[in-house]
């Protein structure tokens, strides 16, 4: 579980996060949604420790991030997995090497054990025939699946995904969403996903945090988001013609 209390972050005097408080529960897919520039990526990078927060507290289970020394933070990071928006796969490594990489770097396991664990995860994301391919030889959806495999191979307690289905066709996007949800539930991971894709919200939004201009504008679940009377959320959710039609049918 991750708990945020009054998180503030600014860049060059511009406040980007203005007192965000939220709880992301384990075994659930927690979505952060909002328009571009609302602070989603900054919040995710703060959670990862890539940005230092100005004030507030972040709790990872019972550990207080702000009170941890550099070594403890490094240890905590080893319990985190991250799926980047552009996958961030290592170009010069094959699929298998990419997935083996974190274990090679951070564990003392033998090569055979590492390879076995990596192959197991690759099979889990249905890429068993792509072991020896380079990232450049894969489609966008396959790259995302490799990124997910690499993120979960260390069996993380926390999984972060930055727009995991951006640039993917709707069908592949749903496959990726469902894969993340299944892995989250199977391993009881606290998963936090940045998204502005309404399909993802409807598919896997167990908990949803809506950000607007760096403020928490709404919090709820996919069941509640359709019937909320929050203007900012409705403005965002029903911005497309498709969603407007769905609302008409729903009403």
């Amino acid at each position: 579980m991750i708990t945020l209390k009054n998180i503030m972050k600014s860049f060059d005097g511009t406040e980007v996060l203005k007192g965000i408080s939220m709880t992301f529960e384990a075994g659930k897919t927690n979505l952060i949604i909002g328009q571009s520039g609302s602070g989603k990526t900054v919040l995710l990078k703060c959670l990862l420790g890539l940005h230092q927060i100005d004030s507030g507290q972040m709790y990872f289970n019972d550990q207080v991030f702000g009170e941890m020394d550099e070594e403890s933070r490094r240890t905590l990071r080893r319990e985190m997995g991250m799926v980047f928006q552009g996958s961030a796969l290592f170009d010069s490594m094959s699929v298998l090497e990419n997935v083996m990489f974190p274990m090679k770097m951070l564990t003392k396991k033998s090569y055979a054990e590492i390879k076995c664990a990596a192959e197991e995860v690759i099979e889990r994301v249905n890429l068993e025939n792509a072991n020896n391919k380079l990232p450049a030889e894969l489609s966008g959806g396959m790259q995302k699946r490799v990124a997910i495999a690499r993120a979960v191979v260390m069996k993380p307690k926390y999984l972060f995904c930055d727009e995991p289905n951006s640039g993917l066709d709707p069908k592949t996007a749903i496959v990726i969403d469902n894969l993340i949800r299944e892995i989250t539930q199977e391993n009881n991971i606290t998963t936090v996903i940045n998204s502005h894709d309404m399909n993802s919200v409807m598919e896997i939004g167990d908990t949803i945090l809506f950000l607007k201009d760096g403020l928490k504008a709404w919090e709820g679940s996919k069941e509640l988001i359709f019937n909320t009377d929050n203007d900012a959320v409705n403005d965002f959710v029903y911005s497309s013609n498709l969603m407007k039609k769905i609302k008409q049918v729903h009403n």
Binding site: R77, M82, L89, L106
Partner: peptide, 9 residues
Amino acid sequence: QIDALEVMG
């Protein structure tokens, strides 16, 4: 890719 390395610790 550098962020990915950092996130891995």
